[in-house]
Simulated scan of single mutants.
Amino acid sequence: MKTKVALITGGYTGEAEVSLKSAAFVQSQMDTARYDVYPVHITVEDWYYLDAEGKTFTIDRSDFSFVQNGQKVTFDVAFIILHGTPGEDGRLQGYFDMIGLRYTSCNALTSALTMNKGYTKAVLTGVPEMYAAKSVLLFESQRAQAYGMVTDALKLPYFVKPNAGGSSIGMTKVKTIDALQEALDKAYDAEGTGQEVLVEEFVTGREFSQGIFRNAQGELVVLPATEVKTTREFFDFEAKYTPGLTEEITPADLTVEQQERAGRIIREIFVRLNCKGMVRVDFFLENGTDNFYFIEINTIPGQTAQSFIPQQVRAFGMKETAFYTELIEAALVNTD
């Protein structure tokens, strides 16, 4: 009998469009001999299963089931490909924990923590060989004082971004002080990000993104890194999703020593944050020092054919079908 997989997509933020594309690619790569895959859309208005003919079936939230042709359908596992809230911030994971449904991502606590960039950096303080840019975390109650708090503590240029959010939405690189207030307002007001802002001193260097996952045998597997070179000021939303603006090199041109050092750092991050499934770590290699600077961690990384993780899986010599099978099977044996 096939395993029934709920492929979770959609969401409550501007990342929903990316989530839908990611889920479509994942579904196209699933091992249909082993799994029955049901795309489940989660929106502010409704939760529903969308079948191949475009018919919708409302999800019963008491047990995450639906009725089709008079038969109740339940799931063995949820494959979460929902970027942003509620699929990446721990809300959906907490719900699944309460009803006893296994899932492919980090647990509720880790998901909530890692959506908060400032708190994540605090937890990762002391990871060997890892550096972090000097930063200021700003809450809504500090909005009136935010400008002064930043200028008192940090040196230009700055990266100003929502403390909780993805796809670089609401992010600005500030090179002159007269642009700071507008950048702060943009980050504070970014939809669905909690009105918290993280401001960091800019690190000059090469930018990389690298995936890691725990397979069904319980082993941590570090994927090859991707180097990101963009014609934009930084790797913003347009650079990420507009063809031609960014060059992505997988595997990245790193020395053996740099690869090994990055692998040690990423493994320690995965363990320190108690991650599950697949995650992606973004970092800078600073010019002049050769130090790796942590940027952020993404616990529901994009999964379109052009996304970093699928690129890295292919560079690793693995098929996406086998990769997604590993994630599902790891979730099914996970006893947490």
Rank of each mutant, 00 (worst) to 15 (best):
K117I: 11
V136G: 00
Q68T: 01
A216D: 02
S65R: 05
V67F: 11
T176E: 11
V271T: 02
A216P: 00
A262G: 06
I265Y: 00
T56M: 04
Y119S: 10
T204H: 07
V160L: 11
Q71R: 13
A33E: 14
S135L: 02
D31G: 09
D253T: 08
N163G: 06
T85P: 04
L220V: 09
L254W: 12
I297T: 07
G87T: 04
T230L: 01
R264C: 03
Q71T: 04
S22F: 13
F284C: 06
D185F: 12
K55Q: 06
V221H: 02
M115Q: 04
F292K: 03
Q29P: 10
M30A: 04
F234T: 12
S141E: 08
P86N: 01
V26Q: 13
T13E: 06
M278I: 15
V199E: 11
K240T: 02
K161G: 00
F202M: 11
A78I: 02
A239I: 10
L180A: 03
S135A: 12
A133F: 08
Q93V: 14
E268Q: 06
F316L: 05
F323K: 01
A144T: 14
V18H: 00
G11S: 05
G84P: 00
E268S: 01
A23I: 00
E196K: 09
Y241M: 00
Q217W: 13
Q29R: 14
R232H: 11
A24T: 06
M318A: 06
I177C: 05
V77W: 11
D189E: 14
Y103N: 06
D36K: 15
C275F: 11
E45N: 10
G288I: 09
K2C: 01
T9F: 14
E15D: 10
R206D: 06
R261Y: 10
Y35I: 01
Q68F: 06
E238D: 15
M115D: 08
N69W: 09
E182A: 02
P128L: 10
Q68E: 13
Y324G: 11
T250R: 12
A164W: 04
S307M: 05
N116G: 03
K4W: 02
V199Q: 01
F159T: 07
G87S: 08
